[in-house]
Simulated scan of single mutants.
Amino acid sequence: MTNAENSELSDLGVAHLLADAARAVILPHFRQPGLMAQNKCAGGFDPVTIADRAAEQAMRDLLTEHRPGDGILGEEFGSMPGDSGRQWVLDPIDGTRGFISGTPTWGVLIALADQNGPILGLIDQPYTQERFIGGLGHAEMTGPHGSMALSTRDGVALDRAILFSTFPEVGSAVERAGFQAVSRQVKLTRYGMDCYAYALLAAGQIDLVIEAGLNAYDIQAPIAVIQAAGGVVTDWQGGPAHDGGRVLAAANAELHAAALRTLSQTPEG
C-alpha cells in the first residue's frame, strides 16, 4: 500500500483493521487445552498469554504501516513515542483471567487519544463477534445479529440501578468501602465482566460501572464508547479518568451525580 493510500484510510478504518487482526490472532488460542499463562505480578496473579502478546504485536505492526507518526501505548510492550500529538492505546486482551477461564467477557480495547483524552474507542469481543464503537460521530454495536445504535439508559434512579465491577475486592480497603457504600444503594450489583461491563453500559443494559486501580489502556476505549453513547465517565472526584485509577462510569449525568456524591467522600489514601 502506498503512502497516499495509507493516508486515505480513516482513523475508524484503522481501528477496525487493528481489531480484525487481533481477532485473527487471539481466537485460535481461546478455550484450547494446554494454553499457558505467565504471571506478571510477584505479589499476586496478573496473567499474560501468547495471545496477548501476539495480538498487540499484530496491531503495532499495522500502526507502523498505517499511522507511522502516531504514538502507541500498549499493555504488553509499553510506550512508543510519536510526533503527531496522537496516541493509540491498546489492551490486546482486557480480562486475561476470564480468557484463560473460558468466559466470553474479555475483549480487545483500542483507543485513539490526543492531548485531551480519547477521541475514538473500540471494544471488541472476538468470540461473540460483537464490536462496540464510539467517537468521531459513531456510537454503534455490530455483531452476528446485526447492528444497533448505542444509547445509554436514562431516567433510572440510583435505587433502581444495576452496578457492575470486575472484582468484589475493587481495590484497597478504603476504595472497597466507597464502592460498597454505592452498592448498598442500588438494586443489583454484579461482578466479573471486565471490559464487557462498559460495553453493556453503552448498550443501555446496565447503569453503573465502578472500579479502581485501572491503567490508561484499561479505560480509554470504554470512555470513548460510553461518552459517544450518552454516558459519563470520570474519576471518583469528578475529574478526568483517561489516565486510569479510580473510575466511575454512569449511564447519564443525573445518575453519575448521585453515585459521585458517595464516592467523592472516599479518602485519597
Rank of each mutant, 00 (worst) to 15 (best):
G85F: 12
G85C: 11
G85E: 06
G85K: 02
Q87A: 12
W88A: 07
V89T: 09
V89D: 03
V89F: 11
V89P: 04
L90I: 15
D91V: 10
D91P: 03
P92C: 06
T96F: 04
G98R: 04
S101I: 01
S101P: 00
G102H: 08
G102Q: 09
T103S: 10
P104Q: 04
P104V: 09
T105Q: 01
T105F: 14
W106S: 04
W106H: 08
I110G: 05
L112A: 08
A113H: 00
D114F: 06
Q115A: 15
G117W: 06
P118G: 07
G121F: 13
L122M: 15
I123E: 04
Q125G: 02
Q125T: 08
R131Q: 13
F132Y: 15
F132I: 08
I133L: 15
G135T: 04
G135N: 03
H138N: 05
A139E: 03
M141V: 14
T142S: 06
G143P: 04
G143H: 07
H145W: 03
S147V: 03
S147P: 01
S147L: 03
M148L: 12
L150S: 06
R153D: 09
D154E: 12
A157W: 01
L158C: 09
D159M: 05
R160D: 15
R160Q: 15
R160G: 14
A161C: 09
L163C: 10
F164P: 00
S165L: 09
S165F: 08
T166Y: 12
T166R: 00
F167E: 11
F167P: 00
P168N: 06
E169P: 00
V170S: 02
V170Q: 02
G171S: 08
A173T: 14
V174E: 12
V174P: 01
V174D: 06
V174N: 01
R176D: 11
A177Y: 01
A177N: 06
G178H: 03
G178S: 07
Q180R: 05
A181N: 09
A181F: 02
V182I: 13
R184E: 15
Q185N: 01
Q185A: 14
V186M: 07
V186W: 05
L188H: 10
L188G: 00
Y191S: 02
M193E: 11
M193A: 11
D194E: 12
D194W: 09
D194V: 10
D194H: 12
A197H: 08
